[in-house]
Design a protein around this nucleic acid. Structure first.
Lengths: 225, 225
DNA sequence: CAATTGCTTCGATGGAGGTCGAAGGATGAA
DNA sequence: TTCATCCTTCGACCTCCATCGAAGCAATTG
């Protein structure tokens, strides 16, 4: 009937609430077991099993058996990118959930977005780096400056191995809660890993990140407003 | 149950084949009437009317009455971007349609992708500009060089007004048919408009573009391999 | 070897929604 | 006004599929 790839199949996969919850939970970047995903999605293990099988058949997730556990993860960065762009579009179109849970405010403050830092804290980092000339946004694109490279190395991040990969080093990532940009890409992931290693942040339930006392001081010093 | 914008609602809207066809047809950038969309989607006018109402309620399209016609268009560039990224994901995940129509090969050669040039011809332009140092890709980002600015102005494109807009000037757009990048963004749109004005290309059925004799010579001269 | 845990398959149920025929506006043309 | 065209609403049908109970398989534990 029409030409091109069948976009509706992929969209229909994401279009079920239970599957969307599963995919959203996987955006933390961690591999989760089928039982955990069932809990996240609010369905029974049987139902989750069927959904996971569909997502895997559709190429959106990969599964790996380990003992009697089945670990599920997003199939690629591209899937995560598509999900984030859908979240952005949904937020702008006013498709907010009717029920906002108690974790909501904590999520707005600091959360994981495919292994990089998002939320108000992520926006603060982005703004601080941009104002001080470490990052150079050009439209939707984002480049790192020489000053930014020095800063990253001083922060404990080796840029060279990150740049050898095909994935972009810096990427503007649109924050659905703040409607502002935060730092994605390989550098964003490396920075979050560094912050976790330095005990600035601890992972809470789901995608929530909690700021430690040490982190509070560290952010104020390294990323002044 | 979960936090954040409701991604599944938007995805479910795109997830119906008829609606996906409608949205894909609108990616030409033109506003189409309800009857035309019904034809494109392969459903009756009643069904199309219902789908259009849902898409409008979901914020994906805008409608405008003009006489007894109802013109439908994508609501924003962001919707087009999400659709393209979904097309890319679908193509990589192997969700190709079972039936490939006769227009398929023409589409692979040259087509409209949200008002800029895509297909083999679009990739040729992109590669030619990149090799000759007019465009500077950095990861997923894309910048225009000084040489590129001179080239664009000589091609009859005033860059200043384009840069005042918030939308990016250059954007890498992933081609589902060639799996390579072509030039999107404001500059991509301006170049296609210029090519059409110069009678290099004519719009065929749907998103198909046909190369004229004049255009054949023009491409060979302006965008040598 | 049980017993327990984690996942999957099968079958039945129920609901959501896509589809079109028929009829009813709404707009413009003759 | 009358007609034709375009779109919409209503109602009925029907398919698809999400969901869960029950049972079965697989792997670890005692």
């Amino acid at each position: 009937m029409k030409e091109g790839p069948d976009i509706s199949r992929v969209a229909a996969l994401i279009g079920d609430p239970a599957r969307a919850n599963i995919l959203t939970a996987l955006m933390s970047g961690k591999a989760l077991t089928a039982a955990e995903l069932a809990e996240e999605a609010g369905v029974t293990p049987q139902t989750a099993s069927s959904h996971i099988a569909r997502l895997a058949a559709g190429g959106l997730v990969t599964t790996r058996r380990q003992g009697r556990h089945k670990y599920v993860a997003l199939a690629s960065d591209e899937v995560g990118t598509v999900l984030e762009s859908l979240i952005g579009l949904a937020a702008r179109s006013g498709h907010l959930r009717t029920r906002t849970g108690p974790r909501d405010s904590a999520l707005r403050h600091a959360r994981v977005c495919y292994n990089h830092l998002a939320g108000d804290l992520g926006v603060q980092v982005y703004d601080s780096l941009t104002v001080r000339g470490m990052l150079a946004p050009e439209g939707e694109a984002l480049a790192i400056t020489h000053a930014g490279r020095r800063f990253a190395e001083a922060f404990g991040i080796a840029l060279a191995p990150l740049e050898r990969r095909r994935a972009p080093l810096c990427r503007n990532c649109l924050d659905w809660s703040a409607r502002r940009y935060h730092l994605g890409g390989a550098l964003g992931r490396a920075m979050l890993a560094r912050m976790e290693a330095a005990d600035w942040l601890t992972r809470g339930e789901g995608r929530v990140l909690t700021l430690t006392r040490k982190g509070k001081a560290g952010f104020a010093e390294s990323f002044p407003g």
